[in-house]
């Protein structure tokens, strides 16, 4: 265990908690979705970085190459990227609807309006 051997994991963890921080601390709904996206892309690194093999090549079988990086994380993450953009699109559509109903996309103002209606 050393800085060089674990650096990629630690950057991944930094990206992950940065996304988490944005989701919790920022009240703007669009920015929350951006934070969720950062969290999601950090998971791509978490899966793909361990599959890398120094001296290996992309997993396309050809004569003259013997070491290949692990293709199975790549398959999982290809699916994750497409599903990620699908959820982002749905989330943004909901934000557009919220903006229409409340006139704002700031979480604090939305909660305040809800409270006023209940009272």
């Amino acid at each position: 265990m050393s800085l060089a051997s674990h650096y990629s994991y630690w950057v991944t963890i930094f990206l992950m908690i940065a996304g988490l921080f944005i989701v919790i601390a920022r009240g703007n709904l669009v920015k929350k979705l951006v934070g969720l996206g950062i969290f999601q892309t950090s998971v791509y690194l978490l899966y793909i970085a361990p599959g890398k093999l120094i001296g290996g090549t992309a997993p396309i079988i050809a004569s003259g190459f013997r070491a290949y990086s692990n293709p199975l994380p790549h398959v999982l993450i290809l699916t994750a990227i497409v599903v990620g953009v699908a959820t982002l699109a749905l989330g943004l559509a909901i934000v557009v609807r919220i903006r229409e109903a409340y006139g704002t996309i700031e979480e604090v103002e939305i909660l305040e309006q809800d409270r006023r209606e209940e009272a």
Binding site: A25, R26, G27, N28, V34, V96, R99, I105, E106, V108
Partner: peptide, 23 residues
């Protein structure tokens, strides 16, 4: 998609930071 959503919601500035210490 994000730029389209910004256009539809006319969002420009994030106004405030909430409970940054807990987060």
């Amino acid at each position: 998609l994000l730029l389209g959503a910004l256009y539809l919601t006319k969002g420009e500035e994030v106004t405030e930071v909430r409970r940054p210490l807990i987060a």
